[in-house]
Design a protein around this nucleic acid. Structure first.
Lengths: 109, 109
DNA sequence: TCCTTTAATCGTAATATTGCAATATATAAT
DNA sequence: ATTATATATTGCAATATTACGATTAAAGGA
């Protein structure tokens, strides 16, 4: 089918999955790493730094924005992107929390 | 196209993305949560607990196994699944490390 | 005003993912 | 041997994702 049955899962499960999903592409990882490295915000630079076409980068940025972990402000003819601190920390808390479920090395089958 | 240009990214970026991707579906989140909760290992229970068909669960388990965060051992007619501690911690370290890039609330545009 | 620059959007092709019915496989039990 | 149980695999339909060329929109500079 190709469509996820979100109705049968909890909101938490869907949220975690959605955040993880957006991190599930190397281009978006690269974009985020570059936003961190340059500290300040950038934009069309991403097209040069990463080797993808402008529409493709734009599309990835849109998805990152949709889940609230980056933000963009129009600045003249260009758009300045940067990490959305609040959204980022929400994601970080949720994902780290999920991965911390490990309580000691419980033995296994 | 539908196919990711993995060649243009670093191995680290591809690795992080691959781990995140596998967490990017609520069914897999639910499976992992259940494996943690029941501590010991389970299997066909997952089909009952989660509301998806047996082949679908089987497929999700396969993907989780492929990235090395769970493992399964045949036990009579059933298969016992559980978290692969080593693989899990590798993922945890990588993803947490990536999300920790945040060094103080650098101001933005 | 016209041109340039920058980024978003549209349209489309190729491929991937999700989900399940049907089937296959493998072990246990009778 | 036959049957029951549990899981994997196959095949397929519906939808999603990735990538990009072409185009549009919007602001700055000549």
């Amino acid at each position: 089918m190709g469509l996820t049955k979100t109705e049968i899962f909890t909101e938490e499960q869907n949220q975690i999955a959605q955040w993880a999903k957006v991190l599930g592409h190397p281009a978006r990882i690269a974009i985020l790493q570059h936003l961190f490295k340059t500290d300040a915000c950038i934009c069309g630079d991403l097209v040069d730094v990463i080797g993808l076409a402008q529409p493709t980068i734009s599309q990835h940025l849109k998805e990152l924005k949709k889940v609230g972990i980056i933000q963009g402000t129009i600045e003249g003819t260009s758009v300045c992107y940067c990490i959305n601190q609040k959204g980022w920390h929400q994601m970080q808390t949720a994902l780290s929390g999920f991965m911390d479920l490990t309580q000691g090395p419980k033995d296994c089958c």
